[in-house]
């Protein structure tokens, strides 16, 4: 009978336990080792293979709600790319907050390097419509983004003039919540053949294992 009772306790007691569990490590941090998983190693090596001047598209496809999970990932990837002197095109396809995070994070990381805007990197901002801009960038990125995030026309920017569509891009890296990573995989990778790396929240990871196996993705994310 006692066990029965234990099974039907008020859900608020569970909530309280969760809250305490989450608070303790913050008030008294405990150091735990972090081991990178195989897919993470995959992206690392792919970036290592890039040569200075190669172009990478980095898509911020998450909102503030996923920041705790994805900000460290985006920062690590950007630092790695800029260290390799790779040119980075930043876009955002996720409607809510993606572009705000892109503005803040890109500014934060690029300030650590000596980079020229419009040449070494560009922040093109957000475009509505999910798959529509993704597809359209296969033909022309400039048509989709006639202006960058600060409404400066992209015409004349060396990086935009030079990197015309996916054909000129080595890897698309998306930091994605929800379905957007999948769109990059089965639309951009499947139809345009460009490598796609998805850094995703844990909830999407189990499904991505199926895509990873079929070679449609190079990795799934730092965890």
């Amino acid at each position: 009978m006692k066990i029965q009772k234990l099974l039907y306790i008020d859900r608020r007691i569970i909530y309280l336990l969760v809250a305490i569990g989450a608070l303790i490590p913050i008030i008294r941090p405990i150091g735990l080792p972090v081991v990178p998983s195989a897919p993470v190693q995959g992206l690392f090596e792919r970036v290592e293979e890039l040569e200075p001047g190669d172009a990478v598209m980095l898509s911020f496809d998450y909102g503030p709600s996923s920041e705790p999970e994805l900000n460290p990932m985006s920062a690590a990837i950007m630092r790695h790319l800029f260290m390799r002197e790779v040119r980075v095109m930043v876009v955002a396809i996720f409607p809510l907050g993606g572009v705000q995070i892109a503005i803040r994070e890109v500014a934060r990381i690029t300030s650590e390097f000596d980079l020229e805007y419009g040449v070494d990197y560009v922040n093109l901002g957000y475009k509505d419509g999910g798959q529509a801009p993704m597809k359209a960038m296969g033909v022309s990125i400039q048509d989709v983004f006639p202006a960058d995030v600060e409404t400066t026309p992209t015409e004349g920017m060396p990086i935009v003039e030079d990197v015309r569509n996916y054909g000129d891009i080595e890897v698309v890296i998306t930091l994605a919540t929800g379905i957007i990573g999948e769109w990059w995989a089965n639309l951009v990778n499947a139809q345009f053949g460009v490598d796609v790396a998805v850094g995703c929240t844990a909830v999407s990871a189990p499904k991505y294992y199926a895509y990873l196996r079929s070679g449609q993705m190079i990795q799934r994310g730092l965890q």
Partner: peptide, 17 residues
Amino acid sequence: SFGYTIMARISLLMGRF
């Protein structure tokens, strides 16, 4: 999938805390 997600969800909460 469920088990894979639990810790990530907790980490979101830890972000707020």
